[in-house]
Amino acid sequence: MKKSILKNSILSLIIISVVSCSSMKTATVSGKVSVIQKGKDGYTATIENTKGRIYLGTISIPNLSNPQLFKQAEIGDTIVVKGDVWKMGKEKQITVREILELKQKNVAEAKITGTVQSIEKGKDGYTAKIKTTEGTSYFAVISIPNLGSPGKFREFKIGEKVTLFGEIWKMGNDNRITVRKILD
């Protein structure tokens, strides 16, 4: 008897999932982050747009089209995301595939100077590990979209000394900088 109930419950859950997922569409959602729920590979952000609509945005490294562009939003930040929009009951959900923009409420901008320690290629650029003259390490996200145009983009070599300007943020214990200008 219990096995039959369990099988029927699982089958019902699968059917509901298939029906729910079949009505997905790709959309862009923008708004202010009001709640953050931490998860295993990312987080869920409650995003409220200017019309008062609320979306629950699942932002996780495996779901992103380019995992290197993962960014941690905080409550009060403004975010623009693109992904698969669907409903679960009355709640609007978005499985985020791209973080198009993240404006942090307290963005710290800084200039760093250091030596390139390593380089990891990405879709639109690369991430360079920079060790500053003070001994602090930063993972510098250097990409054409973040710099604003292909003419401003430059590839560095390991051992090269660089000066960069951009937004400083943290991912776990790692210091990061989204590079907006290459200064040397």
Rank of each mutant, 00 (worst) to 15 (best):
V80Q: 12
I59Q: 04
K71L: 15
V96L: 04
Q72K: 10
E48M: 05
K87P: 03
E74T: 12
T95M: 12
A73S: 13
D77F: 01
V96G: 00
S60M: 12
N66W: 10
Q93G: 06
L56A: 07
L56E: 05
S65Q: 08
T46I: 07
G57L: 01
P62N: 12
K82R: 13
Q68G: 15
I94R: 02
V80N: 08
E74M: 10
I94G: 07
R97S: 14
T44R: 02
I59V: 14
K71A: 15
Q93W: 00
I59F: 04
P62I: 14
I59K: 06
R97C: 10
N66A: 15
T58D: 05
E48D: 00
R97G: 12
T58K: 09
S65M: 03
G83W: 09
M88C: 13
D77H: 02
M88S: 15
A73E: 06
L56P: 02
G83D: 02
P62M: 12
K92I: 10
K92C: 07
E98L: 14
D77Q: 04
I94V: 09
N49K: 00
Y55W: 01
I61M: 11
V85Y: 03
I54M: 03
I54T: 08
G52M: 08
I94E: 01
Q68V: 14
G52F: 06
N66I: 14
N63M: 11
T44S: 03
V80L: 11
E98R: 15
R97W: 07
I59H: 00
E48C: 06
V85C: 01
T78K: 07
T44F: 00
R97P: 07
S65V: 09
E74L: 12
W86P: 07
I94M: 02
V81F: 05
T58E: 07
T58C: 03
Y55T: 04
V81C: 09
G83F: 04
E91T: 13
K90G: 15
F70G: 11
P67H: 09
G89M: 03
E91H: 11
K71T: 14
T50H: 01
